[in-house]
């Protein structure tokens, strides 16, 4: 049920995975929110053909 799953999010403390701008994670940390920053880079080093193949094979 979509209702219960989204509602659950509204009931729980946030625990965030941050992919991208690190400032967002820093600010959440300062507020005492549990957050983990992903050291992200484009999949397959930006090789779009390989990235496309990967998305079909799934990871």
């Amino acid at each position: 049920m979509s209702e219960s799953k989204v509602k659950k999010l509204l009931d729980e403390p946030l625990r965030v995975v941050n992919i991208g701008l690190e400032g967002f994670a820093t600010e959440l940390e300062q507020q005492g929110v549990k957050v983990i920053q992903v050291d992200w880079s484009p999949p397959a080093g930006g090789d779009t053909k390989l990235a496309n193949l990967l998305s079909k094979l799934g990871t």
């Binding site: 880079s41 999949p43 397959a44 080093g45 390989l50 990235a51 990967l54 094979l57 799934g58 990871t59």
Partner: peptide, 10 residues
């Protein structure tokens, strides 16, 4: 070792 993950993450 999963070749998909090696290629994806570099």
């Amino acid at each position: 070792i999963d070749i998909r993950l090696v290629v994806e993450t570099g």
